[in-house]
Design a protein around this nucleic acid. Structure first.
Length: 424
RNA sequence: GGAGAGGUGGCUGAGUGGUCGAAAGCGGUCGCCUGCUAAGCGAUUGUACGGUGAUAAAGCCGUACCCCGGGUUCGAAUCCCGGCCUCUCCGCCA
């Protein structure tokens, strides 16, 4: 969330940012009104409480001196009643205030293009060679079915549409990609591997910004547990340091994690979701960084490079897109997308979002650091990138590495992990 | 799942209704001392919110916070209820 003091001091900046992020600025007006109310009520309650405290001391003194305090106690009863009333009112206002603030998005960074829809996205560059085919490239679902490495029908049978059963070398390819990506990030990019819970509680989900706005997008266990399935490893990993004060000398912290990711993707169906393009459960290797505000935009560029490195080593054609204000997520200030080309479906597929959240998540999750010993704690900046998401990577890989006979070559870097150079 | 113990400041740990934002120690910061290091001496040392200060800072004032949420009471770290978490023992289980 945004800093309430900042919102109060610079409402017009907030309003502009909200408009460009397609948020309703009425929320801002509501905030300002409630904030005003809260402060005037707070002053009243605190005065009464100050009175209660001094009179309470007085009563204690009288009792010690064995004097009769009945009259004083009688008057205190009224004061306490009044406090109880005002406290209840205040509590309600604070609840609404908080809920309003939680629904105000992060503001776009100055380098994020301002535009209300995706037409403002900027394709920064194309990388890698587009393969020239001398035959018609098949879509991945045909390749996978013929090779018997992915069984879409049986996945649906046991869980529902959007759930995939990998089989044989398909399963092994999935595992190989996960292991290889983790190895690259830990051994060459300086990340520490973590393996977090796949379910998280409401607090964690709120910390990274998925809640309260997007509850409907997530799988949720019953009311007794009130747990959510990770939609991305960003959630458990970013919240590792929830309510902690980190030491400045430990920053930046680089973490990488594999998790399965679960998304309801409600309402999505049809052509865009065929095969592996959009599924309810998928694997992903995630990169998460915690750093100081001064370094976060440098770290953001490095993060992008780390994610890109995966695609480069696999020798797949991709492009880098700078997202505009209207297309970046609720919690992000700036975001690059990496899109892989898939010749079988002839599409650019998003396989990574590389975002800087600045202090937005840290403020919600209460993740701070002490710039130097004795100094006041400040909020860290958090960043994350997919490094990368598997299904669409597999799509691009199968479709780019296919041969005319329907077999698929294994990219060189993966051969030690898959144990073969050809899927046939 | 059953039985028990417990959750207090950055950490350890005292505190069973008013004089407690909380003893003591450790750690941190500043100063002194010391040829260096270690030790020693003195002082200081939580956070949030609000008021005032010029909706700058310092300062000053106030309120809240002893796991969380309720309750009892004129008054709660302390008593009562619910929840969460940790530990020990038993049971169950991969």
């Amino acid at each position: 969330m945004l800093d309430a003091k900042f919102v109060r001091a610079e409402p017009e900046k907030v309003r502009q940012g909200m408009i460009y992020k397609n948020a309703d600025p009425a929320l801002l007006d509501e905030f300002l009104l409630l904030d005003e109310k809260r402060r005037s009520l707070l002053v009243q309650v605190e005065q009464l409480k100050a009175e209660r405290n001094t009179r309470s001391e007085e009563i204690a003194r009288m009792k010690r001196e064995k004097k009769d305090a009945t009259a004083e106690i009688e008057r205190m009863r009224e004061v306490s009643q009044r406090i109880k009333q005002l406290d209840a009112e205040l509590d309600e206002i604070e609840r609404s205030l908080n809920s309003v603030l939680m629904n105000i998005p992060n503001l776009p960074h100055e380098t994020t293009p301002l535009c209300k829809d995706e037409s403002g996205n900027q394709i920064l560059r194309y990388e890698g060679e587009q393969r020239k085919f001398d035959f018609e490239p098949a879509p991945h679902w045909e390749l996978a079915a013929a090779l018997d490495i992915i069984d879409f029908e049986r996945g649906s049978k046991i869980a529902g549409s959007g759930f995939v059963l990998y089989k044989g070398l398909g399963a092994k390819l999935e595992r190989a990609l996960i292991n290889w990506m983790l190895d690259v990030h830990t051994q060459e990019h300086g990340y520490t591997e973590v393996f977090p819970p796949f379910l998280v509680n409401r607090r964690a989900m709120t910390g990274t910004g998925q809640l309260p706005k997007f509850e409907f997008d997530m799988y949720h266990t019953d009311k007794d547990d009130d747990l959510f399935l990770d939609p991305t490893a960003e959630v458990p990993v970013t919240n590792i340091y929830m309510d902690e004060i980190l030491d400045a000398k430990d920053l930046p912290i680089y973490l990488t994690a594999y998790t399965a990711c679960f998304r309801r993707e409600a309402g999505a169906a049809g052509k865009e979701t065929r095969g592996l393009l959009r599924v309810h459960q998928f694997d992903k290797v995630e990169l998460v960084k915690f750093c100081t505000p001064e370094t976060s935009y440098d770290e953001h560029e490095k993060l992008l490079a780390d994610a890109e490195d995966i695609l480069r080593r696999l020798k797949l054609p991709y492009r880098v897109v700078l997202l505009c204000s209207g297309d970046i997520s609720f919690a992000a200030a700036k975001c690059y997308d990496l899109e892989l080309y898939a010749p079988g479906v002839d599409k650019w597929l998003e396989v990574s979002s590389c975002s800087n959240f600045e202090a937005f998540q840290a403020r919600r999750a209460n993740i701070r650091y002490r710039p130097e010993p004795g100094a006041k704690p400040e909020f860290v900046h958090t960043l994350n990138a997919s490094g990368v998401a598997l299904p669409r990577l597999v799509v691009s890989l199968l479709e780019n590495y296919q041969r005319e006979d329907g077999t698929v070559e294994v990219p060189e870097v993966l051969r030690p992990y898959v144990g073969t150079d050809l899927i046939s």
